[in-house]
C-alpha cells in the first residue's frame, strides 16, 4: 500500500484567486476548467539526439522515452503542477511519477503504465522499464494483465457499480493505492506519444479527462512534420513535432501552464539536457532514499 499524496492540502491562501473561482464554482455554473495549449518542438534536434544515443546505446530509446524524461524534469522544476484534486482540495504528489498510454498488443487496446521517480532515472532506464512492460503486456504475463483480465470478465452491471463507487471514493477521499490496477493513479501527468509512423498531421488535440479525475494534466506529442521556419533570420526547412498540454484551471492558470510547457519544449528542443539520471536500479533506490530523507 502506498500513499501517493502528501498529508496536507495546499493552503487556500496559496491557491491563486482565479483558480479558486473555478475550484469552488457550482456545477450549475457549467464552468469548463479545461485549458489546452499547443506548441511545437524542434524535432531535428531530438531526432539527431535519439539517433546518436541509439548508435552506441544498450537500449533502444524513442521520442516517447524522451517525452517522459523531459516531462519529469519539467515537473521537478515546476512542482506546482505535480498535484491533483481531491474534492475541492489540492494535494501535491510525493514523487515525480509519469504515466504513459501504450498499445496493449494482446488486447489491441490502450493500457497505462507508470514510471516512478522518472526525474531520477536515465533515459535508458526509462526505456528499459517501458520495453519490459510492453513485452510483459503482449505476453499477458504481468500481474496487472491478470487483474485486467479479471476486470474484463465482470458483468456490465457490477463493472459499472465498482467503477462508480471507486470513482466516488477517489474523488472525495485521499486514498492510498493498493495494487496494480490503481497504481497508475500515483502520477498527475499522463503522456501520450502519438508520433507513430503514418499518423496524420496534428493541428489540435484535446484528450479527455479520466472519470476518476486523477490525471490532472495530459501532454501529447504528435507526428513529425516538415515546415519552413526561420533560423538566424533565414527561411529553412525543418522538422517539427506538435505538443499539446491539457490542464485543469482549478489547479493552475495559463501562465503556469505556459511556463511548464516552455520547460518541456526546452528540454525536447535541447535534448542534451535529458542526459543524466540513474541507470542501475540500486542507484535509483539510493537516490530515492536520499530524496525522501530530505
Amino acid at each position: 500500500m502506498k500513499w501517493p499524496l502528501v498529508e496536507r492540502p495546499t493552503p487556500n491562501a496559496q491557491v491563486p484567486l482565479y483558480n479558486r473561482f473555478y475550484l469552488h464554482a457550482s456545477s450549475a455554473s457549467q464552468a469548463d476548467p479545461l485549458l489546452v495549449w499547443g506548441t511545437e518542438i524542434d524535432a531535428d534536434a531530438l531526432q539527431t539526439f535519439l539517433q546518436e544515443r541509439n548508435r552506441g546505446g544498450r537500449i533502444l530509446v524513442t521520442a516517447a522515452h524522451a517525452l517522459i524524461r523531459a516531462t519529469a524534469l519539467a515537473l521537478e522544476q515546476h512542482p506546482e503542477l505535480n498535484v491533483r484534486l481531491v474534492r475541492r482540495r489540492i494535494y501535491a504528489f510525493r514523487n515525480v511519477n509519469i504515466r504513459m498510454a501504450f498499445f496493449h498488443r494482446r488486447y489491441s487496446e490502450i493500457d497505462l503504465l507508470l514510471i516512478e521517480d522518472a526525474n531520477l532515472k536515465s533515459l535508458e532506464r526509462i526505456a528499459l522499464e517501458i520495453w519490459q512492460r510492453m513485452l510483459q503486456a503482449a505476453r499477458g504475463e504481468g500481474g496487472r494483465d491478470r487483474d485486467l483480465a479479471r476486470l474484463r470478465r465482470l458483468p456490465a452491471f457490477w463493472f459499472r457499480q465498482i467503477v462508480r463507487l471507486y470513482g466516488f471514493l477517489d474523488r472525495n477521499l485521499k486514498l492510498p493505492t493498493f495494487g496494480r490496477l490503481d497504481g497508475t493513479r500515483r502520477g498527475c501527468m499522463m503522456v501520450n506519444d502519438l508520433s507513430f509512423l503514418g499518423a496524420p498531421p496534428m493541428r489540435m488535440y484535446k484528450p479527455t479527462h479520466f472519470p476518476d479525475k486523477s490525471d490532472s494534466f495530459n501532454l501529447t506529442l504528435g507526428p513529425i512534420e516538415k515546415k519552413v521556419v526561420t533560423r538566424s533570420g533565414q527561411f529553412v526547412s525543418a522538422t517539427v513535432m506538435p505538443l499539446f498540454l491539457r490542464a485543469d484551471h482549478r489547479l493552475v492558470d495559463a501562465q503556469q501552464v505556459g511556463r511548464f510547457l516552455a520547460a518541456v519544449r526546452d528540454h525536447l528542443s535541447n535534448p542534451e539536457r535529458l542526459a543524466g539520471g540513474y541507470y542501475e536500479s540500486s542507484d535509483i533506490d539510493r537516490a530515492i532514499v536520499q530524496k525522501l530523507k530530505k
Binding site: 531526432q47 539517433q51 541509439n54 533502444l60 524513442t62 516517447a64 501504450f102 498499445f103 498488443r105 510492453m134 513485452l135 503482449a138 506519444d193 508520433s195 507513430f196 509512423l197 513529425i224
Partner: peptide
C-alpha cells in the same frame, strides 16, 4: 530502420 524512422514501437513489438 532507425535512421529512416521506420522502426516505431508498434513495428518493433510486432
Amino acid at each position: 530502420l532507425l535512421e529512416t524512422g521506420l522502426l516505431d514501437s508498434l513495428l518493433l513489438m510486432d
